[in-house]
């Protein structure tokens, strides 16, 4: 019995060493298996929580619910009309593009996904998990957006799920430009509060989204819209990213530091769109050169 115990301990020791030294070729499938295994339950739990959230919101306020229902009916009708008009405009657009002889790049289809979990298991990265993966045609490094603006990019894609590294993560870098002035910059995440709050931790207040090293002479104002520039080859150009909330000089006073409030509400993500992979080289070849604003 004692020998058996030692044998089990020895086997566990070997397993321990194997786990710690797992090569990437083995670790990735293992990670994928665990994610795939838990993804349906995470999706189920996320839906259950959403339902519970809705029930709690609606209980005790039936009048508001009825008014809301009537308003939604009207809005639904209005949206249906707009969709019909939109389809008509799309057809016209295609016809005009053909007439102009422009070779239109096949844009592919954006994939709608549901957010099944927020943040990674340890809270080290700002991320969200989606219910789409390789089986839905997703890959690493695709832009993820909501109707309001850019959310982040995909990474760690497995068969039926993938993670999104949010804009607010400290490791996130996005090439952006100011719409009004055309000034370019690199946007970095602050790490903790994705809602645009200035204080992200009790002991370490950090801004959520920052453009460091903005030209000190550039014409920048608060509430300026910032969009993706398309440089870097990950994000297509002109996706709304955020609005300028504060501009200040850096410690050296050689550059300015710009804080942004994200356009998309990163704290309440439920459904997102994953854009097809952006081919910067092809897009640049297909489009006429953009006229940059005068500095």
């Amino acid at each position: 019995m004692r020998e058996r115990g030692y044998l089990i301990l020895l086997a566990l020791g070997v397993a321990f060493l194997i786990v710690v030294n797992l090569p990437a070729t083995v670790a990735h499938p293992l990670r994928a298996i665990v994610r795939e295994g838990l993804a349906p339950y995470q999706a189920w739990a996320a839906r259950a929580l959403n339902h519970a959230d809705r029930v709690v919101e609606s209980v005790g306020d039936f009048d508001r619910l009825r008014t809301e229902c009537d308003r939604l009916r009207l809005e639904n009708e209005s949206l249906r009309t707009r969709v019909r008009n939109g389809a008509s405009l799309e057809r016209r657009n295609v016809e005009l593009s053909r007439l102009l002889g422009r070779a239109r790049e096949a844009p592919g289809h954006a994939l709608a996904c549901e957010v099944i979990a927020r943040d990674d298991g340890g809270g080290w990265w700002q991320s969200a998990r989606l219910d789409g993966g390789v089986s839905s045609g997703l890959g690493n490094g695709q832009a993820v957006i909501t109707a309001d603006g850019l959310v982040g990019r995909t990474r760690d894609v497995s068969d039926g799920a993938c993670d999104v590294l949010l804009l607010s993560d400290r490791g996130s870098r996005v090439a952006v430009r100011f719409v009004r002035s055309g000034v370019p910059g690199i946007l970095t995440g602050g790490g903790l509060s994705p809602a645009g709050e200035p204080a992200l931790g009790v002991l370490a207040p950090l801004p959520p989204l920052t453009i460091e090293y903005a030209d000190r002479g550039a014409d920048l104002r608060t509430n300026d819209l910032v969009v993706t520039s398309g440089l870097g080859g990950v994000f297509p150009p002109d996706l709304p990213v955020g609005m300028v909330r504060r501009i200040e000089f850096g410690p050296s006073r050689l550059y300015r530091r710009v804080e942004l409030t994200p356009c998309a509400d990163l704290t309440r993500l439920r459904y997102v769109l994953v854009l097809p992979p952006y081919n910067a080289a092809r897009a640049a070849a297909a489009e006429p050169p953009r006229e940059e604003a005068e500095p």
Binding site: V19, V20, N21, L30, R31, G121, G122, W124
Partner: peptide, 16 residues
């Protein structure tokens, strides 16, 4: 061992 694998798989932490 299993809980560690779970935790690392659920996040982006390196395995182990």
């Amino acid at each position: 061992v299993v809980a560690g694998l779970f935790q690392d798989s659920l996040s982006s932490l390196p395995m182990g």
